[in-house]
Write a protein that binds this DNA or RNA. Structure first.
Lengths: 343, 343
DNA sequence: GTTAGCACTCGATCAGTCGGAGTGCTAATC
DNA sequence: GATTAGCACTCCGACTGATCGAGTGCTAAC
């Protein structure tokens, strides 16, 4: 048969994938003729399936089991067969209702969102917070606390707050701290946090500052407060993947959990997802993460105002209800963007 | 035989428990005579074990397996047999080294501590943050951000920071915000956060405020910022318990993970642990948590200055290396207390 | 009180059997 | 020429029975 996928081939591939998604069992020719009104006999379906196998779209675990879609098949399915459903009214309401988190700590909002993604999709929810380095500086403050401690607070225009508790020798006065903070706030207007850091490091080495011990200390304080490190990653609903039959094996399960404990791997992946706007889908090994074998990731970027600032998504088995989950991710991302913009 | 536990009985019970902790397999009479120099024959040991079983300290899964310690046995072991080892020099160094987290976000410190507990014990680490309601108010601030947003920041004497992003109608001026914040900061000196909340709710209903719309709004802002809810709980190293053979069953594993997703259950338990200072041990069903069957919890309280503020600990299987883990929990709690005090 | 000896029990393991599901091929049919 | 019925074949999984080893409880001897 042709290398080209016939229309009938497509329909049968779709049937296999959908059955497999539903049952996690290899799909046989009989099953398909029964459940999908194709008006074809099992024998015919077998012929077609054999062709699909040759094209690398199906695989059989062994001779007398049914067949399983390959990654290539999922990719094809997602690209050109799947019709993304509209999100159901119910889901929409549920998401909207649970997004009523006005007045919450901004970090909490993202965590809640991650949990929301996990429960609505029944897979794992992931949200990558905005990269601290790229947000825009708004204000810095130093607050003197009892016990020779100073709390430094760094506020960004997008409303995120970084703070550090630092011990100092006791002869700093609150008035001096305020003066320093005002001066710095003035100096650093309009810079991104990354630039702020650079500026401060420069200043610290400048001649002028060398002889101003107060300023030197203020700069040191600021420097300790600035976090240009990795953005936070909120991973919720890990227990959900325990329900997936393909991970019922204890060893496999352990591997996956260990992999997710190392968040750096996921961060890389999410960084890649942030390169392009909108919904993206990584199927199995496409993510180039060894441990992601058998797992897929659906992501979408979210924004504050006009800037793409973060990524959120759902991680599940390759055998995932794409048609159902894609709109959930999409809708949630849009809702969060709106929430971050106005609130 | 007597109801009273003989000295020999104790030694044999100890041997069974230690073997079982090491291997997770039911322990037979032979094994014991071999590994622990008791100078007794297997038959004698069998007799004693039979007595121990009658006393409810041992149980046999079936006739021809060895025996397993019961919860009662663990309790006895922990109370009167176990000699808690001194913490090893290595562990001490490791913990101390990893506690060098000066300049970190206070919440991060606790999270790190939890991870530290999990890796040094190779079970699960848990840290309950100080109850927000009971910390002492220090300062409140309102910062106007672009886009009709106001960031409210609540600072406690212990260095914790709560912040909320709130949308407002645009006619509030930064000067007014500062004035309000200063006024409130002045009014609320010395109160706990819980008292602050109460005071604010009272004020909001007072006659005077009714006609001062600016003040009314400031109060509303503050009220939204205050979180008197549950303290945060940092649970790290969940993957570690997957290594325990008794949880290799997928169903059991799922149950446990699900249980830990509901943090409220653990919070209750930790609240109980906070009633008494120092190290405490909950064995299996003693915690009155249904899902804690087969698991034990070792906790210690930690303090800032003279006040007990939180609890940290390790969760592992009942079959846990108590002698090894207890000093780890103890030492970590002391170290964190010192860290929170000075820093 | 302790121990050696022995019969007994029970789970784990392994080989063998059987049935069901599914395939591929061939020949008949539309 | 495409489709289908029929059939032999393959392979897995579930079940069965036999065997083995670890461990026990009991009894009688030390």
């Amino acid at each position: 048969m042709a290398d080209q996928l016939s229309d009938r081939g497509k329909r049968i591939l779709e049937a296999v994938i959908e059955d497999y998604i539903a049952t996690a069992e290899p799909v046989g020719s009989r099953t398909i003729t029964r459940s999908h009104a194709l008006a074809l006999s099992p024998a015919t379906v077998r012929n077609v399936m054999s062709d699909l196998e040759e094209m690398g779209l199906l695989a059989s675990p062994h001779t007398s089991a049914g067949r399983i879609p390959t990654e290539k098949a999922y990719r094809l399915y997602v690209n050109s067969i799947l019709e993304v459903k509209n999100i159901t009214r119910d889901k929409k309401d549920e998401i909207r209702r649970r997004c009523q988190m006005a007045g919450k700590d901004p970090a909490q909002v993202l965590k809640e969102t991650s949990r929301l993604l996990s429960t609505t999709s029944s897979y794992m929810g992931v949200v990558m917070a905005p990269r601290p380095a790229s947000s825009v500086f708004h204000q810095i403050e130093f607050v003197k606390l009892p016990g020779k401690r100073v709390l430094a607070i760094l506020i960004s225009k997008n409303g995120t707050v970084q703070n550090r508790l630092v011990q100092v020798d006791e002869d700093i006065r609150q008035e001096d701290l305020v003066r320093m903070a005002n001066y710095l706030t003035d100096q650093l207007q309009g810079l991104t946090i990354a630039q702020v850091r650079e500026r401060i490091l420069n200043e610290m080495n400048s001649e002028k500052v060398r002889y101003d011990s107060l300023m030197a200390r203020a700069l040191a304080l600021s420097e300790q407060t600035i976090n240009t490190g990795n953005p936070e990653l909120f991973l919720e609903g890990q227990a959900n993947i325990l329900d997936q039959p393909e991970f019922s094996d204890a060893g496999r399960m352990r591997e996956i959990f260990r992999a997710f404990e190392k968040k750096s791997l996921l961060l890389d992946l999410f960084d890649r997802a942030m390169q392009a706007d909108g919904v993206q889908i990584f199927i199995g090994s496409e993510s180039h993460l060894l441990k992601m074998e058998g797992m897929s990731l659906i992501t979408s970027t979210y924004m504050t105002g006009k800037d793409t600032v973060g990524v959120l998504g759902v991680i599940g088995p390759t055998r995932m209800g794409y048609g159902r989950v894609i709109p959930i991710v999409d809708y949630t991302a849009k809702l969060i963007s709106r929430l971050l913009e106005t609130e």
